[in-house]
Write a protein that binds this DNA or RNA. Structure first.
Lengths: 352, 352
DNA sequence: CTGAAAGCGCTTACAG
DNA sequence: CTGAAAGCGCTTACAG
């Protein structure tokens, strides 16, 4: 018995349907299918219904590569993070992702700290149309942007957040780090401390500079001594805090209070002192910076400067969107300063 | 004075050069330019040099949207994270990003926990060619995959990591959670504890189940009592630990040791007890799970189960790459179990 | 080793 | 409101 042979592949296992297939099934042109999907109101109800039905029947979804090529956009942005493993940054990233995805954009990540990371390469995303814009959380990338500008490459929508740069005219969203540091020091002075030290962030970092200057300015304003041996170099890590604790321990004349440029520094500092039998705040007071989630649950709960992480991420995303869409309005400042707040907890007390 | 008017736009501010421009400058066809860039060895040295020079001169970079459309790939993958703000996950993400970018892929993120997140929508990336594959760190997404499979949509390369599912045949990379939990409990038993409690992860989570079963199995193996009032429900957060501490505190007959399903739970538990004057490990011993960075610097430094975060991310990425490229070899197991390790620190001691 | 030509799957003025 | 047609910028058999 010879069965009728069907040379057409069965509809079910056919390849991904394309707009042509939908058009054929609906009995309209591809233009009409396309319109129905992107501008439904530009199409008659009858046609619309037929097309939508055909879309259902075929299981059609528009190919984004094709659409993007035609529309000259990628629908993605990239976020440049200094350190993904750091909860401070990953939470800002989360806020950015939330805002961007609500606006229909996807977010690509690039971690400056990864061994594979190549500074020179990251701007390619902007130049080869794989991203429509970029949010930069790493101020040290400024030079790369500068270089590409002088190379005559057209500027793309870029927003700096948390960290920033004065060398370039990109918009930024951040806090007033100088004031934040000053508030921290003011709190210590108000408690009665006059021997106040500092553990700094990484060298050549805008945040480090701003916070150190806020620290010094407040000391000076109160007529307190600024001693360079109480001003420890570091970076934003726990390890930097441990290092500083060792240095502090070895001092003949020890500060009774320390302002740390990050919460993680504070954790390392407190942890290391603790293992040497020095108690916080009984023996030393410690203030952090950032107010990451665990700060309130550390032992002792950490007095720190709160940064509005969520707002910062969201604002940066909004600013970038406005830039991409070209709807930057007058009420949008180019440099947005978000408020900081001193959170007093248990790691600070009056000196003995 | 009338100047000569040039109707051609000056070369410098011309739009992005395209492959045509390079071809014209080099005096070859676009096919040859394309080949020079993607398969240099398929082109004579003389031609290659001319083309490369023209690329330099024009500042050409290939448009990825166009290239991807033609090559039928996107060059991106998406990572589905349950909670970006959680350092455990963001560090795995960092490892994935590092491995993928080394292989020339970009990584898109999607955070299950964000209010904007739509489960039904996330698989679109795979269906509309905006991603070539996906790494899933959230086991609860399994049902969505199941649904799309039964909808007859062709399967794409997908790898589950950390969490997994037995309902689907996707490859996975993870640790042996059952054994990890058992090791933690064994450690407590070896210290002499016989009243051991548990603070669980979120309900309906594979990790929660596996760790709880490991906990119970080890108790049973040692002939110890399993008391349901010592087995607290929770999730992986600090808050869950705080809640559990309150419940623990109210107990008439308190366990002398607690196994926590995550380090964050342990932090919350210890922190809350501390504020009530209960000391760890003097009054209660506590074991965590994960060994996130801060665990060793908590006060007291946390005894916990170490997960190889970096390896897990890297392995998941490699597995996905092999899948995408279709080079999955025989030595690659479908289910990869990575080793765990008990890290004894200061949060555990013999009972009083 | 090289080029002419087709085509990836959409979108969008343009004309009717 | 709808369709025919051009085109987004590449890549890749195919022929020579």
């Amino acid at each position: 018995m010879v069965e009728k042979i069907n040379l057409e592949p069965p509809a079910v296992i056919r390849n991904r349907p394309k707009i042509q297939d939908v058009a054929r099934v609906a009995g309209v042109s591809t233009a009409t299918v396309s319109r129905t999907l992107s501008k439904p109101e530009a199409v008659s109800k009858a046609t619309r219904d037929m097309v939508l039905e055909a879309v259902q029947a075929t299981g059609y979804r528009a190919d984004h590569a094709a659409r993007n090529l035609r529309r000259r956009r990628s629908g993605a942005i990239v976020v440049l993070v200094p350190n993904l493993g750091n909860p401070f940054f990953s939470q800002i990233l989360a806020a950015i992702e939330n805002t961007m995805s609500a606006a229909g954009y996807s977010v690509l990540i690039a971690d400056t700290m990864q061994p594979q990371f190549r500074k020179q390469q990251i701007l390619e995303h902007l130049h080869n149309n794989s991203a429509d814009g970029m949010i930069v959380l790493d101020g040290s990338m400024a030079e790369e942007f500068l270089r590409s500008e002088t190379a005559g490459i057209a500027a793309s929508p870029v927003v700096f957040a948390c960290e920033w740069t004065d060398k370039l005219r990109y918009p930024s969203v951040r806090i007033d780090n100088h004031s934040g540091a000053a508030m921290a020091v003011r709190h210590l002075i108000d408690l009665g401390h006059c021997k106040i030290g500092h553990i700094a962030g990484p060298a050549h970092n805008v945040l480090t500079t701003a916070r150190r200057e806020g620290f010094k300015a407040e000391l000076k304003a109160s007529g307190l001594k600024i001693r360079s041996e109480w001003d420890f170099d570091g970076d934003f890590s726990i390890e930097a805090g441990i290092q500083a604790a060792q240095s502090w321990f070895d001092l003949d004349n020890r500060p009774t209070a320390m302002f740390c440029a990050s919460d993680e520094i504070a954790f390392g500092f407190i942890s290391e002192l603790n293992s040497r039998g020095i108690r916080v705040p009984d023996d030393v007071s410690v203030v952090g910076f950032d107010d990451i989630d665990i700060a309130r649950h550390f032992i002792p709960p950490l007095t720190t400067i709160h940064q509005p992480r969520n707002d910062m991420g969201e604002m940066a995303a909004r600013k970038l969107l406005a830039n991409i869409l070209g709807v930057a309005s007058a009420d949008q400042q180019d440099k947005l300063l978000l408020p900081v707040e001193l959170i007093v907890r248990k790691s600070t007390a009056a000196p003995k």
